[in-house]
Write a protein that binds this DNA or RNA. Sequence first.
DNA 1: CGGTTTTGACCCGCGC
DNA 2: GCGCGGGTCAAAACCG
Length: 192
Amino acid sequence: MDISQNPSFTCFSDENFINPFMDNNDFSNLMFFDVDEGGNNGLIDEEISSPTSIISSETFTGESGGSGSATTLIKKESTKNRGSKESETKEMGHRVAFRTRSKIDVMDDGFKWRKYGKKSVKNNINKRNYYKCSSEGCSVKKRVERDSEDAAYVITTYDGVHNHESPSHVYYNEMVLSYDHDNWNQHSLLQC
DNA sequence: CGGTTTTGACCCGCGC
DNA sequence: GCGCGGGTCAAAACCG
């Protein structure tokens, strides 16, 4: 799979990889969950049968093998779109959300984001921040908010797929090439 | 000086 | 139609 087809969290996650936010985050508690759920954190670990999902579970399972801790994952195409408008023709491709325990709100995932909004949402005293990929022609968005029940967690939701490479891609590729590949696969959340 | 952040206003869908 | 909640716009402020 081409990197440009992947969601934006492509390039973090290896424990040996120098990670700008690694010292602030606990990725062993990272969780993926269904964004289709609406309000409540519908953490689930089954139901990976989404027909159109592009992010395959295999892409992530390497991680669970590496850290051993409870990691739930879920990926889903935005099938439920605004009521009955099924199967949108818009380019709102993928939506992926995950929750991490992090001291910092916004995680540097290698892409360049521009903040365009901030909202307080219901059932959450914390504000939700809206970011857009600042790369020209790329309309990927992401939302970042603190978990209302446990402020130690940050919920990040990605909307869409980047139509370009990560600015850090070149650097990342160099890392991969000079890295033991098997070991890399074991620990990567998502192989670029 | 150009890009980013801030923040209130605006828009839109949905339920009543 | 109206109000509510969520998402986006855009002008001003901010910053490197």
